[in-house]
């Protein structure tokens, strides 16, 4: 009984599978089949054209995003009061070169009309410029490092000034031992912070897109160096606060120390 049912089902499936082919053979004369083939070709060509256009649009969008980023990086350099002029000059030159190259690449991609050409051009957006992987981190690290260096100079001036005041208090017979110890620590922190900050530009300024992906490790090392500088300088500033509170407690002030 079961075998009979299986055979019936198999026969039914065979008939159903054969019917469309038979129907098509009966309904499509040779002329119409040629027309359908041309229509299929046209549809395929349209799909390919649509794909090329979508690919071009995405590529041009990626380029536009990078050009916007380059504008923002240039603005950040212009805004900085602390960036070393030599560093600013080098970074601006590289940014201008990248922008010009990307604009040229955008023109070539806009003119391309086949997938193969686009396959050759689109990777250049990333491989030739590395705006996000190399250029932007490099610019920001250099700006921050130069700012840290300038901050360290202010702290250094503060150590000299505070030391001068402490010397005068000592002349009055005031015990400044603790404050002097803090000042010594502050001077050490400023020195190490300065050393770390000034090392960063030399680590990253020479990086190019061709250095990717090895550049990532170098950038991370530079960032760690910069964070170390920030921590030292922040601690030095805390010492300055404590020393100033001590001075205020000795020379008088407007409020509680």
């Amino acid at each position: 009984m079961t075998m009979k049912r299986l055979m019936t089902a198999a026969l039914a499936a065979l008939i159903l599978a054969a019917v469309p082919g038979m129907a098509a053979a009966q309904e499509a004369p040779p002329g119409e089949r040629a027309t359908e083939a041309r229509e299929d070709q046209a549809a395929t060509a349209q799909r390919q054209a649509d794909f090329v256009n979508r690919l071009k649009a995405r590529a041009l969008e990626a380029i536009d995003e990078r050009l916007v980023t380059i504008d923002e990086l240039e603005a950040a350099i212009d805004r900085s009061d602390t960036v070393h002029p030599g560093h600013a000059g080098q970074l601006n030159g590289e940014l201008r070169g990248s922008a010009a190259g990307l604009e040229s690449l955008a023109g070539k991609i806009g003119d391309a009309d086949d997938v193969e050409t686009l396959r050759a051009l689109i990777p250049k957006i990333f491989e030739d410029y590395r705006i996000y992987a190399v250029v932007a981190p490099k610019v920001h690290l250099v700006l921050a490092a130069d700012a840290a260096g300038a901050f360290a100079e202010r702290l250094q001036a503060a150590t000299e000034s505070l030391g001068d005041v402490l010397n005068r208090l000592e002349e009055y017979g005031i015990d400044v031992t603790d404050a002097e110890a803090l000042l010594t620590e502050m001077e050490r922190l400023v020195a190490t912070g300065t050393e770390s900050a000034t090392a960063v530009p030399g680590m990253v300024l020479g990086l190019t897109p061709a250095d990717y992906p090895e550049s990532t490790d170098i950038l991370r090392s530079a960032q760690a160096e910069l964070q170390s500088a920030g921590a030292d300088l922040r601690a030095a500033r805390e010492n300055a606060h404590v020393i100033v509170r001590f001075i205020r407690s000795v020379v008088g002030g407007d409020g509680p120390v």
Partner: peptide, 23 residues
């Protein structure tokens, strides 16, 4: 004030490092 400015730049550098996935 100088430290606040420095902190802002340090944060921007960290954000730039994190944006590598844009590649």
């Amino acid at each position: 004030d100088a430290l606040a400015e420095l902190d802002q730049l340090l944060n921007q550098a960290a954000a730039a490092m994190a944006a590598e996935k844009g590649e």
